[in-house]
Design a protein around this nucleic acid. Structure first.
Lengths: 161, 161
DNA sequence: TGCCTAGTTGCAAATCATTCTCAACTAGAA
DNA sequence: TTCTAGTTGAGAATGATTTGCAACTAGGCA
């Protein structure tokens, strides 16, 4: 549980005014156990203060993005809606199951390896990467026969082709 | 240059009716030298037939996506607008320069390696991956001192920090 | 400690890529 | 040639996000 003072400090250190609205939004993101979209953040914020407008939530999220306190991400198959998370977690990527909608967070060093190599190869400097995976989770994949070849390497099923 | 018959065949083989509108859209994508958005495809299509509506272009693109003749992608910083390309190219990823807007296509095996590993690790089956990079291209990166650390590994500049 | 102003807010309206509705049309199987 | 499920054009609808504007306020400065 973060004290209000801690939240205020985070904002000030990044050159943002610590308004009550921003403190609430930041606290929601600190305490979030899953990825939230602006609408949901707005609803939670309204429990604390029913007068925080959705527009302010959006403006706050954009400010927090600008100063890298928060990162914005998309989930596969729903690229219209943005989700947000606090950026103090380890590097990770998101996999969404097309059947049940579950989101699995995955970690790997290969992506950054790839970026390092590509940066060298092309002489570019990366600043941000957007990546999301979609497919079928262990519970849902076996039900899809057309994908069996993809999961057999895992489960050593008998199959032809 | 594809014959109309060839285009028609591609559509029929994928279970799609070969309407004049679809033939035009498919041909535009075949001949495209860069990534096009629906609006641009519609404008080009209207040169061939001024009565093709934007809605039909969208519907056609969605059909082509469904049957994997075309892939849809996003460029960094503009996740609002979708771009399309024919899917006969080798696996590649897109890097967009934040300064000049140039798009660089990059190839690497590491991403698929990562996916293979993650598929094994989590027992999932991947069906689609969305990925885009953003940063600064070789022409623009040197102008940004805050990114020098990222490019020194390439250019062995002297620098402190 | 109060003042001042650049930065913020709430509200409602605007934006804008994409999708949908529906009546008229048509590709292609029979 | 006929028939019908699939397709089209036009315009309206959708819906997440942004914006204009007038009222408010955080926080630096006197």
């Amino acid at each position: 549980m973060q004290t209000k003072q801690y939240l205020r400090q985070q904002l000030n250190e990044h050159g943002l005014r610590a308004t009550p609205q921003r403190l609430i939004v930041l606290q929601i993101l600190e305490q979030a156990e899953r990825h939230l979209d602006a609408e949901t953040i707005s609803q939670i914020a309204n429990i604390h203060d029913p007068y925080i407008s959705l527009a302010t939530v959006y403006r706050t999220l954009n400010k927090l993005k600008d100063v890298d306190l928060v990162s914005q991400l998309y989930f596969a198959r729903d690229h219209k809606r943005e989700y947000y998370e606090k950026v103090d977690k380890a590097e990770h990527y998101h996999f969404t199951c097309l059947t049940c909608g579950k989101v699995i967070e995955m970690q790997t060093k290969r992506i950054n390896q790839a970026k390092d190599e590509l940066a060298g190869e092309h002489g570019v400097a990366f600043s941000h990467t957007c990546m999301c995976f979609e497919g079928y989770c262990p519970d849902c994949a076996p039900k899809r026969s057309d994908l069996i070849h993809t999961i057999t390497s895992q489960h050593t099923l008998n199959h032809e082709h």
